[in-house]
Nucleic acid binder design. Structure first.
Lengths: 138, 138
DNA sequence: TCCACTGGTTACCTGGAGGGAACCGCGATG
DNA sequence: CATCGCGGTTCCCTCCAGGTAACCAGTGGA
């Protein structure tokens, strides 16, 4: 059996696919929880091909509220995905630019984006099929 | 400018990286919101190398509550990532098995998992650096 | 004089994700 | 007779992500 839920040196660990995954201090969840926010991955994609200013991002993603824009940018900055630079012009302009870490995260994120676009129709189909049989035979 | 926030045939669309992303009915968010749940991606990984039964999964992922286990499995089944098969034994045993769609989703998910493990240390470092400077200079 | 734009902060509120615990029928086991 | 494991369902509660709106200082333009 390849699957092991055990303790290695007192730490609870799952071994899946031959890869150890810690449950107590899971790096995967630690990362996924943050980029899993409503706007985070979209923000990374928005900054993919060049830095943007605050109000530029605001116009680019019209659905985001000012509060969530600030918060999302702060979160991404805190995790080191982007840098915030203030230029002392009048009025001061603030530039957000992806770091190398941010750019490298884009690779797996794009993988998921492409998969989503490729399989969206299939999923919608599966959903309506499930809902239909759920309604009749239960 | 590569970035366009516009309307194509009345639909609000972002063009990022040369790829059109719908905002109104976004396939990416539609997928990411579902696999972004707390247990969903872990569940896919747990079923990666073979089907498992309900209580087998329960023991495998001890932290999940019975309620969330059922709900997560239903969600994944609804989206077509896995199939639920009841064997009329006594007591009836229920098997959960990934579909081809589920397996194919594992590819990009693994990409993210690997990235997370590779860059976890860097991120934690960035976080504590941010928190430290936030404390002093603000 | 009044408004708009810059880049935010703050207070308030709500919906829903997720946790905990009890309960279910059935059969096997002690 | 009681308890365990199977595979759930149901109710209740808490917490927080995220939305709305008001407000801020400073400057430029009509």
């Amino acid at each position: 059996m390849n699957k092991i839920a055990s303790r290695i040196e007192g730490e609870r660990v799952l071994v899946i696919d031959g890869v150890a995954m810690s449950m107590d201090d899971c790096p995967v969840r630690d990362v996924l929880d943050h980029i899993g926010g409503k706007w985070n991955s979209l923000m990374l994609l928005a900054l993919a091909d060049g830095p943007m200013r605050f109000s530029q991002l605001r116009r680019f993603i019209p659905d985001i509220s000012q509060r969530m824009l600030t918060q999302t940018l702060r979160d991404l900055q805190r995790d080191g995905y982007l840098v915030r630079t203030v230029y002392p012009t009048l009025p001061p302009s603030v530039e957000y630019r992806l770091t190398d870490l941010g750019h490298s995260l884009l690779t797996p994120v794009r993988g998921l984006v492409q998969w989503s676009q490729a399989n969206h129709a299939t999923i919608r189909q599966a959903r309506s099929a499930y809902d239909a049989q759920d309604g009749k035979g239960r």
